[in-house]
Design a protein around this nucleic acid. Structure first.
Lengths: 201, 201
DNA sequence: GGATGCGGAATGAACGTTCATTCCGGCCGG
DNA sequence: CCGGCCGGAATGAACGTTCATTCCGCATCC
């Protein structure tokens, strides 16, 4: 920002520098105050740019929130799916999936809250909505495979996924609010064992 | 609403009539679009009253959302706590608590979503925040009692509660979004058995 | 090598719109 | 008739967005 002397000594103007600053500021504010509760000039101030500069990088506030949503959805999708050990045992598969989701929530808590808060919001466009399916479909396939081997209960896969993901969100939000007497990592690790008991046969 | 001729022929003006209409309209709109995303004149139109009339019943938009929050928090608190069979077995206690929460979510799905969405929002006042503790503290006591009898795992009670409540929210939201191949009641009933497995010793 | 001027990025004051809130003329029950 | 309640037009503040202007690094020229 303006009080950073380095900016004056070394311009260090990499391209995308400000774009990243805007996305970062928008993530924090949208996660905390919601889309309608966040004024564009406020995002600009937090990003350390002028209000007009926002519109050099994003054509509108809606375009900004969509870009942000897609960016983090893409990160969480890659985190969950990249080189997943498909051939592992169901129990190990669940542990690995949980571990990856926990790692994302721990590394990027604001992004996790943001994605959860803006899920299916009316100002997200088709492309952003479609991004959801890209994670959910492979996950559903894992559940069905685990059910076929008899390791997981025969409830509807969507129900089990809603239950598991809901539990993760509940624990992360409680940790974020400071309601838990243990660290987020510790809480998520303990919850993993509990939730596996919920879905295993 | 405005196109109901009965309103003109028979005033049928019970006291609190319009107040209830306003609260009902606000519930639907706040649950769907959020606080900042909902314009006051829109609430008035949906309630079938003039924009100015809103301010005869609530001094401000903030006062309206606080009244709404407190009303439904009070309803869910009464639903959960009233004449609870304290002396029952832990398994039956859990079943009854789950049944009551499910009944509330089924009877008032918009209120359930609204309460969840506005939990700890910055425009809620101290009184509204304090209402939360009135449900959570007795529930925590139940968990601790069940842990003492050895029926429930010895994880932090807050963690178990976050996990259970998160799972309920996850299932309700999935049902609300039409993502489940079974009805909300059916989904919640199946999930009850699953979640008990998660927390029982 | 230093001065000059150019081009695009950045800026923030200003614009039209939308919002929460106020105000007032009319309407309805007594 | 009259008094209170009501509706919706009016109001000012705040919003998203635009645009005339400034700023800055670099190439060019003397």
């Amino acid at each position: 920002m303006a009080n950073d002397p380095a900016l004056h000594r070394q311009p260090a103007r990499e391209p995308g520098d400000k774009r990243a600053a805007i996305l970062d500021a928008a993530l924090a504010l949208f996660a905390e105050r919601g889309f309608h509760g966040t004024a564009v000039p406020l995002v600009a101030a937090r990003a350390g740019v002028g209000a007009g500069t926002m519109y050099r990088y994003f054509p509108s506030k809606e375009a900004l929130v969509n870009a942000l949503y897609r960016h983090w959805k893409q990160v969480i999708t890659a985190t969950m799916l990249e080189s997943f050990p498909l051939d592992a045992e169901p129990r190990a598969l669940f542990a690995e999936g949980w571990r990856r989701l926990s790692a994302f929530a721990t590394a990027h808590p604001r992004a996790f809250v943001f994605l959860e808060l803006h899920h299916h919001a009316p100002y997200l466009d088709e492309e952003s909505r479609a991004a959801d399916a890209r994670v959910l479909l492979p996950l559903r396939a894992f559940v069905e495979q685990a059910q076929r081997t008899g390791a997981v209960r025969d409830d509807p896969p969507e129900l089990l996924m809603a239950l598991v993901f809901g539990a993760v969100v509940g624990v992360v939000r409680a940790a974020e609010a400071g309601h838990l007497p243990v660290s987020r990592e510790d809480a998520l690790a303990r919850a993993e064992a509990r939730v596996w008991e919920a879905i295993r046969r």
